[in-house]
Design a protein around this nucleic acid. Sequence first.
RNA 1: GCGUGUGUAGCUCAGUUGGAUAGAGCGUUUGGCUACGAACCAAAAGGUCGGGGGUUCGAAUCCCUCCACGCGUACCA
Length: 587
Amino acid sequence: MIKDYFLNNVENALKNAILKGNLGQMNDYTPNSLVVEKPKNPDFGDFAVNVSSLARVARIAPPAIANAIVAEIDDKDNEYSVIGGFINFKAGQKLLLAAIEEIFKKKEAFGRPENIDKEKIILEYVSANPTGPFHIGHGRWAAMGSALANLLKFYGHEVYQEFYINDAGSQIQKLGNSLAIRIRQKMGEDVDFPTDELERKNYYPGDYLIPVAEKFVENSAEILKGTSLEVKDFCKPVQSEETLNILCDFAKNEMENLQKALLENFRVNFDNFYSELTLHKSGKVDECVNKLKASGKIYTKDGADWFRSSDFGDDQDRVIKKADGANTYLTADIAYHIDKLERGFDRMINIWGADHHGYVARVKASIEALGYDPNKLEILLGQLVNLVINGNEVRMGKRKNMVTLDDLIEEVGVDATRFWMCMRSIDNTLDFDIELAKTNSDENPVFYVQYAHARACSILRNATESKIDTETGKSIPAPMSVSEFDELVNNYKSEILAPTLDSARKLVLKLEEFKSLIKLSAETRQVYTICRYVQELAAEFHSFYNANRVISDDKELMKSRLALVISVKQVLNNALNLLGVSAPERM
RNA sequence: GCGUGUGUAGCUCAGUUGGAUAGAGCGUUUGGCUACGAACCAAAAGGUCGGGGGUUCGAAUCCCUCCACGCGUACCA
């Protein structure tokens, strides 16, 4: 990377200057403490290092330090200048040409770092209850999670994406009982969900179970094969254990299928769906409880078993087995995380909604109590999503104004939904403005970026296509032949770019920046940086396009600019791929 | 109360680990198409970085304190 090249030169020169005694006594100097930044004023250069931090140790004024360092730099290909305590750097032709050459050479792999500490990562996200359709909040985790998976894979890690199905516990009973009411309605009974608010909480009154009930009734013969039951056996106010189990299983299955279909449509591809129920059945949960007991971190109070999580930094101890003998949600979650570790992952990354933040300390505590390294668990807490409709915020969470993710995607499309869900830092609540996301105008960053890609494709098409003059009716030959174009793509030499380099400095630097971006985004786990980058790159390209005509009679200049367009197209593709947003050839 | 996140231009947000004159997009104003896609570009106006203290040569960034808003604070999942 150009900025690393620069930093490296500065660091080496600094060492030499110290050895020569030109920087006074640098006893307390910590090596590699300098940071490369971008100059506020682009006239100063492409990159800069501020050496003021060395002034205190060296007891020399910052400009003198900067000059002493620059004096030790032996690099005639690039420009170094000192202003105040800053060493400014302007990349010479060689570095810029090499950047584009690298794009042609690596193509879809451009941006991947060379040497990284590869980790085997399990990334868990969405992990919803199979009790209903996704709401828009799930959409944020789905979009961000899959983009993060793409990014970490691209970076070089091994990434396993997992969805934890919360299919155990009382909410499934609620689901089964709710389906029973819908079935009875379908069968013509005059029943409805309780109107009493407290009682209503034991049901899912949303419309989405109506088609499930229809399906159940229509296919009842098949569903109930092997039992002595009929549909009318389900039309009772209180379900038997047998009928309830059937209802629960059926409804749960339907909901899971609904969710899986949506995820696929949303370009979210999990490697595994891990059922909480199978975790219980496997005995792993009990095993975990026993291990915790053996470690002496469990005590009994008020008839329940408590885990001493406060010994590991949690605010208070947590119940792990209720007085009625049932495990809590936490108990299963502990077993689940231990299971992940036992499956051999180096790192577990979870994306959780901010409403779960209280769980971080207790899960980490359990991992530590069981003798594992809690630092292997990295929890990314995401702030929630607000929907903005006609300029008004609509709070999510209340079932009443629930907008499902299906509806949202249908309304604004997969590309725009994914981009909008990813475009803000995970620490910020996200305002999702439906109207804005829908518009195909400059108010919408997705289209701005996609337009840049389509425009690049259009130019490349024009390069090899003949045209007909609308006035004279004569055919205008193609600016270059297809074989010439292929030659440019496949046998790119860096000299080709030279004629346009001066007018495209900023664009080339932005393209090269993709490498730094990947490193930054992957290491900080923040995908919104990709959204920003892609907008900046598109802006540089549009600007270049308006200032320079690509297709022209000057063949060398045309090839040169075409090479740049090809590079832009490639890098936009690479970046949009990570986001799971399409890069259209035409719009 | 405690925990946690946020507060930067009219709006939505960046700000790379303390540095140069605080930056983008939208909106507003002005200019640019008989030329490769104007879904674009160029330019201007717009700021007490929530308030107040402190550390430092230097603070949007670190510390303290106060204010406002979101989320959490279950033997629910």
